[in-house]
Write a protein that binds this DNA or RNA. Structure first.
Length: 462
RNA sequence: GGCGAGUUGGCGGAGUGGUUACGCAGCGGAUUGCAAAUCCGCGUACAGGAGUUCGAUUCUCCUACUCGCCUCCA
């Protein structure tokens, strides 16, 4: 059996992945807070862990992997959004949850086996908080329940920090009811205008961290294999999850995986910098989901990835080449071993791409197609944008938009046939000026739109 | 200030204690009326300094720079 090697944040090294139970490999990934469209940065962990999910399913069998990704649908950002828009919280979370699923499907992500909503697990959270209080790891103060960080000796081990160091460098305002500045909220009181649930500590709502501990426990048990997310979650979110769960007596996750941040113009995409855009923005601009997926996977997940226009173009070019050569081809099964090996080496997706290039240049298109499938790329036959380009490129099968181009192509062909190359080339230059790439195929002229093509420009040919 | 990650050829980006990554761009060639597409060939890079070693881009230390976390964020 293939040995998968994964970088474990907990040990800071690459380790052989040994599942607790190969018949039920379990993975939990922190999902989005649903209050707005997913920005491009949200897509990175989704794609990275989707590829890992696909690899695990390949190695252990599709029925032997359980992947859980939550939706955080109780959060102060959502409350704020509701207050400013006048819409109900339920409306906002329902809508943005569906947006998220639509957008992630567009970039080729499989849906996890379970997608729990925090609001459906309030009871489990309360039970867990009560247990932590009973075990003296948490305390109630002024309607809040706080986790006592000092009661977990290994607090900070994941992110390589010590409580004392953090207090020394802390820039956080310390709430007066905290025993220790680093203590964090498990439960907080809600005023009447905020969502709240009855609890032993009064009407209130959970803090952010407890939901993942409670849901992972409920759906995956006290001990599971992989916990993933963006590396900005390492501290404090994951650190707090570990503290809570361990103190509740759960073994929790064996392997911790963190993807690096996405950058735009060399800077992290973040709300405070205002340099973020959504997956939907790109899709609406006509960037195919496959291209977004390709760009994401062209950089190893543990390195920062810069989203650039040039990468987008190169990705589209490479994918077109590969789709062209795998169009109508039957893929081999199983996928070629060099692809599995590269992927098994801590999800070295970039190395996979170089192997795919190799398969392509060797003319091994059946293996290339199998590799593309394993990475979660659709078959060329199913891709509308690729099909559209191909059809438009065919002289015999011009689409509505390019129909207006037809007479010019006929004219070009006529000039060429009469060896009137001076005029033929002049016409060609005019056609190419509006973003159409002309070429000659076995059946006659081919016209393929480039990125610069806009149907409105057809007017310019007259 | 505390902690962490990184610095590879024009660009992107893997990897390795000793032999050409790969892709894009570029150059040369085949093919083509010219092109496009396709195919063939060409590039000898690893921030700076010191050390370990027979040998370091790969290990250790130092310096410089970049980025991230410590605050909402994946």
């Amino acid at each position: 059996m293939t040995t998968i090697r994964l970088h474990n944040t907990k040990t800071r090294r690459k380790e052989d992945f040994v599942p607790i139970n190969p018949d039920n490999v379990r993975m939990y990934v922190c999902g989005p807070t649903v209050y707005d469209r997913a920005h491009l940065g949200n897509a990175r962990p989704v794609i990275v862990f989707d590829v890992l999910y696909r690899l695990l399913r390949h190695v252990y069998g599709a029925d032997h992997v359980t992947y859980v990704r939550n939706f955080t649908d109780v959060d102060d950002k959502i409350n704020a959004r509701a207050a400013e828009s006048g819409r109900s919280i339920g409306d906002i979370t329902a809508e943005t949850t569906q947006w998220f699923l639509d957008d992630m499907a567009a970039i080729g992500a499989l849906e996890p086996d379970a997608m729990p909503r925090a609001t459906q697990y309030i009871g489990q959270m309360i039970t867990m908080i009560e247990d932590l209080i009973a075990k003296d790891h948490a305390y109630e103060k002024e309607g809040h329940v706080l986790f006592r960080v000092r009661s977990y000796a290994q607090y900070g081990a994941l992110s390589g920090r010590s409580v004392d160091d953090m207090i020394a460098g802390a820039r956080v305002e310390v709430a007066p009811f905290k025993e220790d500045p680093m203590d964090f909220v498990l439960w907080k009181p809600s005023s009447d205008d905020l969502p709240g649930w009855p609890s032993p500590w009064g009407r209130g709502r959970p803090g952010w961290h407890i939901e993942c501990s409670a849901m992972a426990h409920d759906l995956l048990g006290t001990h599971f294999d992989i916990h993933g997310g963006g590396n900005d979650l390492m501290f404090p979110h994951h650190e707090n999850e570990i503290a809570q769960s361990r103190c509740a007596g759960h073994e929790f996750a064996n392997v911790w995986m963190h993807n690096e941040m996405l950058q735009v113009e060399g800077k992290k995409m973040s709300k405070s910098l205002g340099n973020f855009f959504t997956v939907r923005d790109l899709l609406d601009q006509g960037v195919p989901g496959e291209v977004i997926r390709f760009v994401m996977l062209s950089t190893h997940y543990r390195k920062p990835m810069d989203w650039t226009e040039r990468k987008r173009e190169e990705a589209a070019m490479t994918l077109k080449t590969w789709f062209r050569s795998t169009d109508g081809i039957k893929p081999v099964s199983p996928p070629p071993p060099q692809i599995i090996d590269a992927l098994s080496n801590d999800i070295n997706s970039h190395l996979v791409f170089s192997k795919l290039h190799e398969l392509h240049s060797n003319g091994d298109y059946t293996a290339l197609k199998a590799g593309l499938r394993l990475l979660g790329f659709p078959d060329a036959e199913k891709l509308d944008w690729f099909r559209g380009d191909q059809e438009m490129a065919s002289f015999d099968n011009l689409t509505k938009e390019s129909g207006a181009l037809f007479p010019y192509l006929v004219e070009w062909q006529r000039l060429r046939n009469s060896r009137n190359y001076v005029e033929a080339d002049a016409l060609k230059a005019r056609i190419e000026a509006i973003g159409i790439k002309l070429s000659i195929g076995p059946a006659g002229p081919n016209a393929e739109p480039t990125e610069a093509f806009d149907p409105a420009k057809l007017e310019l040919l007259k």
